[in-house]
Protein backbone atom coordinates (compact mmCIF):
# COMPACT_ATOMS: atom_id res chain seq x y z
CA UNK A 1 0.00 0.00 0.00
CA UNK A 2 1.34 3.40 -0.90
CA UNK A 3 1.55 6.29 1.54
CA UNK A 4 -1.34 8.74 1.79
CA UNK A 5 -0.22 10.89 4.66
CA UNK A 6 3.08 11.56 6.35
CA UNK A 7 3.59 13.66 9.50
CA UNK A 8 7.20 14.66 10.18
CA UNK A 9 8.26 15.98 13.58
CA UNK A 10 4.99 17.77 14.18
CA UNK A 11 4.78 20.13 17.12
CA UNK A 12 1.78 22.15 18.17
CA UNK A 13 1.88 24.80 20.82
CA UNK A 14 -0.83 27.15 22.08
CA UNK A 15 -0.08 30.47 23.64
CA UNK A 16 -2.33 31.34 26.57
CA UNK A 17 -1.23 34.72 27.83
CA UNK A 18 2.45 34.46 28.57
CA UNK A 19 2.26 30.69 28.94
CA UNK A 20 2.95 28.31 26.09
CA UNK A 21 1.20 24.93 26.17
CA UNK A 22 2.69 22.12 24.14
CA UNK A 23 -0.20 20.05 22.77
CA UNK A 24 1.63 17.78 20.33
CA UNK A 25 5.29 16.93 20.59
CA UNK A 26 7.47 15.59 17.77
CA UNK A 27 4.79 13.48 16.15
CA UNK A 28 5.91 11.22 13.32
CA UNK A 29 3.15 9.30 11.63
CA UNK A 30 2.55 7.56 8.32
CA UNK A 31 -0.90 6.57 7.09
CA UNK A 32 -1.17 4.28 4.09
CA UNK A 33 -3.91 4.36 1.51
CA UNK A 34 -7.02 2.35 2.50
CA UNK A 35 -5.69 2.08 6.04
CA UNK A 36 -8.04 2.50 9.02
CA UNK A 37 -6.51 3.99 12.14
CA UNK A 38 -8.07 4.70 15.51
CA UNK A 39 -6.61 7.32 17.79
CA UNK A 40 -7.20 6.81 21.47
CA UNK A 41 -6.07 8.52 24.59
CA UNK A 42 -7.23 10.50 27.57
CA UNK A 43 -9.08 13.78 27.31
CA UNK A 44 -6.66 16.58 26.58
CA UNK A 45 -3.98 14.24 25.27
CA UNK A 46 -3.99 15.89 21.83
CA UNK A 47 -6.13 13.48 19.75
CA UNK A 48 -8.47 16.11 18.30
CA UNK A 49 -5.58 18.51 17.73
CA UNK A 50 -3.89 15.81 15.68
CA UNK A 51 -6.81 15.35 13.29
CA UNK A 52 -7.32 19.11 13.12
CA UNK A 53 -3.75 19.38 11.84
CA UNK A 54 -4.25 16.54 9.39
CA UNK A 55 -7.43 18.18 8.09
CA UNK A 56 -5.56 21.44 7.57
CA UNK A 57 -7.83 23.23 10.03
CA UNK A 58 -4.89 24.26 12.20
CA UNK A 59 -1.25 24.84 11.35
CA UNK A 60 1.50 23.07 13.26
CA UNK A 61 4.01 25.17 15.17
CA UNK A 62 6.73 23.15 13.45
CA UNK A 63 7.10 20.05 11.31
CA UNK A 64 5.71 18.96 7.98
CA UNK A 65 2.51 17.29 6.84
CA UNK A 66 2.63 15.63 3.46
CA UNK A 67 -0.67 14.60 1.93
CA UNK A 68 -0.72 12.70 -1.35
CA UNK A 69 2.93 13.58 -1.78
CA UNK A 70 2.25 17.27 -1.37
CA UNK A 71 3.39 19.27 1.56
CA UNK A 72 0.33 21.06 2.91
CA UNK A 73 1.75 22.90 5.92
CA UNK A 74 3.09 25.76 3.87
CA UNK A 75 0.06 26.14 1.61
CA UNK A 76 -2.24 29.14 1.58
CA UNK A 77 -5.52 28.67 3.45
CA UNK A 78 -7.50 28.60 0.18
CA UNK A 79 -5.23 25.88 -1.23
CA UNK A 80 -5.74 23.77 1.88
CA UNK A 81 -9.50 24.33 1.53
CA UNK A 82 -9.22 23.02 -2.04
CA UNK A 83 -7.49 19.84 -0.84
CA UNK A 84 -10.03 19.36 1.95
CA UNK A 85 -12.90 19.94 -0.44
CA UNK A 86 -11.78 17.17 -2.78
CA UNK A 87 -9.91 14.70 -0.59
CA UNK A 88 -10.78 14.92 3.08
CA UNK A 89 -14.16 14.23 4.68
CA UNK A 90 -14.66 15.20 8.32
CA UNK A 91 -17.17 13.74 10.76
CA UNK A 92 -17.80 15.51 14.08
CA UNK A 93 -19.09 14.30 17.39
CA UNK A 94 -21.86 16.95 17.36
CA UNK A 95 -22.85 16.27 13.71
CA UNK A 96 -22.89 19.96 12.73
CA UNK A 97 -25.45 19.87 10.01
CA UNK A 98 -26.50 23.23 8.62
CA UNK A 99 -29.75 23.81 10.53
CA UNK A 100 -31.81 25.38 7.77
CA UNK A 101 -30.78 22.88 5.07
CA UNK A 102 -32.65 19.61 4.59
CA UNK A 103 -30.84 16.26 4.82
CA UNK A 104 -30.44 16.14 1.03
CA UNK A 105 -29.21 19.72 0.86
CA UNK A 106 -26.62 19.13 3.58
CA UNK A 107 -25.17 16.20 1.63
CA UNK A 108 -25.49 17.93 -1.75
CA UNK A 109 -23.43 20.86 -0.43
CA UNK A 110 -20.13 18.97 -0.73
CA UNK A 111 -21.15 17.39 -4.03
CA UNK A 112 -21.98 20.74 -5.55
CA UNK A 113 -18.76 22.16 -4.25
CA UNK A 114 -17.00 19.33 -6.12
CA UNK A 115 -19.02 19.94 -9.27
CA UNK A 116 -20.92 16.66 -9.37
CA UNK A 117 -23.40 16.57 -12.21
CA UNK A 118 -26.56 15.73 -10.25
CA UNK A 119 -25.68 16.57 -6.65
CA UNK A 120 -29.18 16.16 -5.24
CA UNK A 121 -29.66 12.81 -7.01
CA UNK A 122 -26.29 11.55 -5.76
CA UNK A 123 -27.11 12.77 -2.25
CA UNK A 124 -30.39 10.89 -2.30
CA UNK A 125 -28.68 7.67 -3.43
CA UNK A 126 -26.24 7.98 -0.57
CA UNK A 127 -28.88 8.76 2.04
CA UNK A 128 -30.97 5.87 0.75
CA UNK A 129 -27.96 3.62 1.20
CA UNK A 130 -27.78 4.78 4.85
CA UNK A 131 -31.48 4.04 5.42
CA UNK A 132 -32.67 7.67 5.31
CA UNK A 133 -34.98 7.55 2.30
CA UNK A 134 -37.90 8.76 4.41
CA UNK A 135 -35.87 11.71 5.72
CA UNK A 136 -34.71 13.37 2.50
CA UNK A 137 -36.53 16.63 3.03
CA UNK A 138 -36.37 16.86 6.79
CA UNK A 139 -34.42 19.60 8.53
CA UNK A 140 -31.76 18.50 11.08
CA UNK A 141 -34.06 19.55 13.93
CA UNK A 142 -36.57 16.94 12.72
CA UNK A 143 -34.00 14.10 12.79
CA UNK A 144 -32.88 11.90 15.68
CA UNK A 145 -29.23 11.96 16.79
CA UNK A 146 -28.43 8.74 14.89
CA UNK A 147 -30.09 10.05 11.76
CA UNK A 148 -28.24 13.33 12.01
CA UNK A 149 -24.91 11.51 12.28
CA UNK A 150 -25.77 9.35 9.26
CA UNK A 151 -26.47 12.51 7.27
CA UNK A 152 -23.18 13.95 8.54
CA UNK A 153 -21.31 10.82 7.42
CA UNK A 154 -23.02 10.96 4.04
CA UNK A 155 -21.92 14.58 3.72
CA UNK A 156 -18.31 13.70 4.65
CA UNK A 157 -17.99 10.78 2.22
CA UNK A 158 -20.20 12.06 -0.61
CA UNK A 159 -17.29 13.16 -2.79
CA UNK A 160 -15.44 9.88 -2.17
CA UNK A 161 -12.50 11.34 -0.27
CA UNK A 162 -9.13 9.69 0.07
CA UNK A 163 -9.20 10.31 3.79
CA UNK A 164 -11.98 10.41 6.34
CA UNK A 165 -11.35 12.11 9.67
CA UNK A 166 -13.84 11.22 12.38
CA UNK A 167 -13.82 12.88 15.78
CA UNK A 168 -15.76 10.77 18.28
CA UNK A 169 -18.40 9.87 15.67
CA UNK A 170 -20.48 7.91 18.15
CA UNK A 171 -19.77 10.06 21.20
CA UNK A 172 -23.24 11.58 21.25
CA UNK A 173 -25.15 8.41 20.40
CA UNK A 174 -26.70 5.47 22.27
CA UNK A 175 -25.33 1.92 21.89
CA UNK A 176 -27.71 0.89 19.13
CA UNK A 177 -27.01 3.94 17.04
CA UNK A 178 -23.28 3.70 17.77
CA UNK A 179 -23.21 0.21 16.31
CA UNK A 180 -25.16 1.31 13.27
CA UNK A 181 -22.91 4.29 12.63
CA UNK A 182 -19.69 2.29 13.06
CA UNK A 183 -20.88 -0.41 10.67
CA UNK A 184 -21.88 2.18 8.08
CA UNK A 185 -18.51 3.90 8.40
CA UNK A 186 -16.34 0.81 8.24
CA UNK A 187 -18.41 -0.81 5.46
CA UNK A 188 -18.05 2.32 3.41
CA UNK A 189 -14.29 2.55 3.94
CA UNK A 190 -13.96 -1.09 2.96
CA UNK A 191 -16.09 -0.72 -0.17
CA UNK A 192 -14.70 2.57 -1.40
CA UNK A 193 -11.11 2.14 -0.29
CA UNK A 194 -10.76 5.37 1.67
CA UNK A 195 -8.43 5.77 4.60
CA UNK A 196 -9.95 6.49 7.99
CA UNK A 197 -8.49 8.22 11.02
CA UNK A 198 -10.91 8.04 13.89
CA UNK A 199 -10.62 9.57 17.33
CA UNK A 200 -12.64 7.63 19.89
CA UNK A 201 -12.98 6.81 23.55
CA UNK A 202 -14.90 3.67 22.74
CA UNK A 203 -12.50 0.66 22.92
CA UNK A 204 -14.83 -1.54 20.84
CA UNK A 205 -14.94 0.98 18.08
CA UNK A 206 -11.21 1.55 18.30
CA UNK A 207 -10.64 -2.17 17.89
CA UNK A 208 -12.45 -2.18 14.55
CA UNK A 209 -9.59 -0.20 13.00
CA UNK A 210 -6.59 -2.02 11.55
CA UNK A 211 -4.19 0.10 13.55
CA UNK A 212 -4.59 1.75 16.92
CA UNK A 213 -2.53 4.77 17.96
CA UNK A 214 -2.43 5.86 21.54
CA UNK A 215 -1.59 9.43 22.39
CA UNK A 216 -0.45 10.49 25.80
CA UNK A 217 0.71 13.98 26.76
CA UNK A 218 0.99 14.95 23.11
CA UNK A 219 3.17 12.02 22.09
CA UNK A 220 2.40 8.79 20.25
CA UNK A 221 3.01 5.86 22.53
Amino acid sequence: MSTLLKLKKINLKYQTGKKSISVLKNIDLVIKKKETVSVVGESGSGKTSLIMLIGGLERPTSGKIIFNEKEITSLHEDEISEIRKKNIGIIFQSFYLIPNYTAVENVALTLELNEFKNPEKEAKILLDRFGLKHRFNNLPSQLSGGEQQRVAIARAIAMRPDLILADEPTGNLDTENSLLISSILFNYVKEEGSSLIMVTHDPKLADKAKRKIKIKDGKIK
Binding site: G55, L57, E77, D78, S81, E82, R84, K85, K86, I90, Y96, L97, I98, P99, N100, L109, T110, L113, R155
Partner: peptide, 14 residues
Protein backbone atom coordinates in the same frame (compact mmCIF):
# COMPACT_ATOMS: atom_id res chain seq x y z
CA UNK B 1 -21.57 27.05 13.14
CA UNK B 2 -22.82 26.90 9.52
CA UNK B 3 -19.90 29.10 8.49
CA UNK B 4 -17.47 26.78 10.32
CA UNK B 5 -19.05 23.75 8.63
CA UNK B 6 -18.71 25.37 5.23
CA UNK B 7 -15.07 26.05 5.95
CA UNK B 8 -14.64 22.45 7.07
CA UNK B 9 -16.07 21.06 3.83
CA UNK B 10 -13.79 23.22 1.71
CA UNK B 11 -15.42 26.61 1.18
CA UNK B 12 -12.89 29.45 1.10
CA UNK B 13 -13.37 32.27 3.58
CA UNK B 14 -13.63 34.63 0.60
Amino acid sequence: MSIAVRKAVGFYSG
